[in-house]
Nucleic acid binder design. Structure first.
Lengths: 354, 354
DNA sequence: ATACAGTTCTGAATCGATGCAGAGAGGTGC
DNA sequence: GCACCTCTCTGCATCGATTCAGAACTGTAT
C-alpha cells in the first residue's frame, strides 16, 4: 500500500494541508519546513499527491481529449490525421496539458459511455463520420470542445477550426474542368452510412451523409455546373473507409466502361493515391492518362505528383487545441477558417484525344 | 452547475447507491427502476457518473500512459514512433482503454512532476533518451510499466519488448563489410548527452550514452572487428535529434575529406534518409556512390531504396500495450524479443573502384 | 507588558462517486 | 402462521486530496 499524504503529515507531525501546500503552494510555508516534508515523503516512498484525488478536488484534470469518430487505430494510418495530432500535441505541450486519445468501441451505447467516461477538461473533435451524438454527450457534460468539421446543428457560439470545404473543392474541380474534362468521377468516403465500395446514384448532393464530404462534393459539382455538366452526368463513387485499398477497389472496372471518366476527383489524398495505384495496375499503366486530384496535400502527395488542395493540417490541430486551451474572449474569434490552395502537379492534364 | 448522482437519487426518491448501480451494475436492480432512474437523469441533464470521482473510488482510471522521453510533438514526426503508437492504439482499443500522451516539459523537476501527475493505470515507455528518472517515478508510484529499450538498471521481472539491438545492427554492418567497405562512418543520435552534430571521438563504444544507440553501435563495431577494422578506424558521427536535417548537417563535409568513408551506417532510417538527402545535394549527386544503411524499415525506406534492418514497429506497440493490459502470469513471458531482418535494397553496393 | 501586523500552520468541510453488509419486502413450503 | 429464501434496495464508510477561514506563533514598536 502506497502511503498517502496523511501518512506523510503524521510522520512529520504537521497537518495534511501543510503537506499539500508543500507540493502545490510552496509560498504558503517556510522553505525549511517544505524541505523537511519533501524529505520525509521521499523516505516513506510517497510519490506525490494522487492525480485522481487531486483532479476530483480541484475540479479539473489537466488533459484534453482528442476524439476520432472512427476507429482510433485508423487515425494512425491517415497522414492527415497524424499531422493534425502533431499540431494538437505541440499546443498541448506548450500548455503542459496531456492528450487523451479515446477509442470508441463499436455500438452507439458503448461509444457514448466512452465519451462520458473520459477524464478530460475538454475535447478536440476530429470528425470523420457522423459525430452529432458525441457532441451531444460533450455538451451534456458541460465540457468545452472545438470541432473541426462542419456539422448540422452547430451553434453560433461553437468553437470551430476548419476550411471552406465547398470553395476549396471548387478550386480543384474548376482546374480539372478548365483542362477540358467533362466525363468525371467523384470519389469519396462517407457518401451514405452503409454504401459499399463502388459507383452509386444519388438524386442530389444534399443526400450526402457526412457534412464534410457533402461540402466537398458540392464544390466539385458547382464547378462542373458552371461548365454545363449537371449532377446527373457526374459519376459518384463511394470508397468507404478512406483507404488506398478502398479507393482502388471502388474504382475497379470504372475505366473499362464504354465512356470512362477522363478524370477522378477524390475527396482526400489517400483516396486519390489509391486511384493512382489502381490506374498504375492497368495493363499499360495509366494510358491514356486519367487525371486525378486529391484533397489535403499530405506529405505523400508531393512525391506522387498529385494535384491536390492544400489545407494546413498541423495548424488545424494547433489552433483547435489553442481554441480549447485558451478560449478567445471575443466569440467571433472562436470560429477560424483556414486558407486553402490548389497545388497543381503532374496528376492532372488535358483530356487525351482519342 | 451540473447535477450530481445525489440529485438524481433525490429526484427519483431512491438512494445514491441505487443510482450508481443503475449505471455500473444493472444486475443489481430491476429493469423498471433502472429505466426510471435513467429517464430522470436524462431529464435533469445528468451526464452520468463523474469519471474522476469514479476513478478515485474504484482505484483505477481506465487509461494507460504513453511516455516519450523526448518532446511529444517530435514523436509525430518520427515514422517509427507513429507505427509504434498505432500498435499501442490497436491494443488499447481492443481493451476499451484510453491512451494518455504525456508531454514532458523541459527540466527534470517539471518533467518528474508531469509523470507523477499523469492519471493512468500504467505506462508504455518509449525511450529515445535517458529515461531512468522516469522509470523511477513510475516505480515509486507503484504503477506497472513496459519498457521498449534496454536500460541499465532493468530488473529481471521488468516487462520489456524490444529487439536484440546488437545482433540486428551486426547484420547490417556485416552486409556492408561483406561488400568490401572498410572506411566507414557510424551515424547516430544519443551518442553523448550534449554532442553537437558532426564527427566525434570516443575511446570505446562503452562510452556511448543512450543504451539503444550503444547496442547498435556495438553491433556495427562487432562486424567490422571481424574483418579487422577496429573501433578507432571507424568514424563516429553524432546527429542529435534524430531528424533528416540533423543527419544531413552532421555528415556535411564528411565526404570532402582526404579519405572519405565509402559507407555510412545510420542508427535509424530517418538519419539514413538524411544522409541520402545530403549525398543527393552534392555536385554530381551520390557519385561515386556512398553506401548507406538505416535501421527500422519505416514506410519511407522502401520508396527510397534504403537498405535497412527491419523491426516490427506496430507489433512492438501492440505487444507493449498487451503486456501492460493483461500481464502474462509467467514472468518469463514478460520479456519479449522481436525478430529483425536485414532488408537489402539499392542504397548499398560494392566499394566503387577509384 | 501590550498591542498589532505578518507569517505560518491547523481543522473541517468538500469534491462525486462506489460497494459492502444488512434491512425490508414479497413469496413459498409445511 | 412461522421459518426461510430471494430479490431489491439503503446507509454509511471510504477513496485521497484541496482550500479557506481563522488560530497560533513571531517579532517589533510603544
Amino acid at each position: 500500500m502506497k502511503p498517502t499524504l496523511q501518512a506523510v503529515a503524521e510522520a512529520v507531525g504537521v497537518s495534511r494541508s501543510t503537506v499539500s501546500n508543500a507540493y502545490s503552494r510552496p509560498d504558503q510555508l517556510s522553505a525549511a519546513l517544505r524541505e523537511r516534508i519533501l524529505d520525509a515523503a521521499r523516505q516513506l516512498g510517497y510519490p506525490g499527491p494522487n492525480p485522481t484525488a487531486r483532479s476530483l478536488r480541484r475540479g479539473f484534470v489537466g488533459s484534453i481529449g482528442v476524439l476520432f469518430t472512427s476507429q482510433l487505430s485508423y487515425a494512425f494510418t491517415d497522414p492527415f490525421a497524424i499531422r493534425f495530432l502533431a499540431g494538437v500535441s505541440g499546443a498541448a505541450e506548450r500548455h503542459g496539458t496531456s492528450m487523451l486519445l479515446v477509442p470508441l468501441p463499436p455500438g452507439q451505447t458503448d461509444a457514448r459511455r466512452a465519451v462520458e467516461n473520459a477524464a478530460v477538461d475538454g475535447f478536440c473533435v476530429y470528425c470523420v463520420a457522423d459525430e452529432e451524438w458525441a457532441l451531444d454527450v460533450i455538451r451534456d457534460r458541460g465540457l468545452p470542445y472545438v470541432s473541426t468539421a462542419p456539422h448540422d446543428d452547430a451553434g453560433a457560439d461553437e468553437r470551430f477550426v476548419g476550411i471552406d470545404e465547398r470553395a476549396a473543392a471548387h478550386s480543384a474541380a474548376a482546374h480539372v474542368a478548365g483542362l477540358g474534362h467533362r466525363r468525371v468521377a467523384l470519389l469519396a468516403d462517407g457518401v451514405l452510412p452503409d454504401a459499399p465500395a463502388g459507383p452509386l446514384t444519388l438524386s442530389g448532393v444534399h443526400e450526402v451523409w457526412h457534412p464534410t464530404t457533402r461540402g466537398r462534393l458540392a464544390g466539385f459539382a458547382d464547378a462542373f455546373a458552371e461548365v454545363g455538366v449537371g449532377w446527373a452526368e457526374l459519376t459518384l463513387v463511394s470508397a468507404p473507409g478512406n483507404s488506398r485499398q478502398a479507393a482502388a477497389a471502388a474504382v475497379a472496372g470504372l475505366f473499362d466502361r464504354p465512356a470512362p471518366p477522363t478524370a477522378v476527383l477524390a475527396g482526400s489524398d489517400v483516396l486519390a493515391l489509391g486511384v493512382l495505384d489502381a490506374l498504375a495496375q492497368r495493363p499499360g499503366g495509366n494510358n491514356p492518362p486519367v487525371s486525378v486530384t486529391g484533397f489535403d496535400d499530405v506529405p505523400e502527395a508531393a512525391s506522387a505528383g498529385l494535384t491536390t488542395v492544400r489545407q494546413p493540417a498541423e495548424e488545424k490541430g494547433r489552433i483547435a487545441a489553442e481554441l480549447l486551451l485558451d478560449p478567445p474572449t471575443d466569440p467571433a474569434a472562436g470560429h477560424v477558417l483556414l486558407p486553402t490552395a490548389l497545388v497543381v502537379r503532374a496528376s492532372t492534364g488535358p483530356v487525351p484525344r482519342s
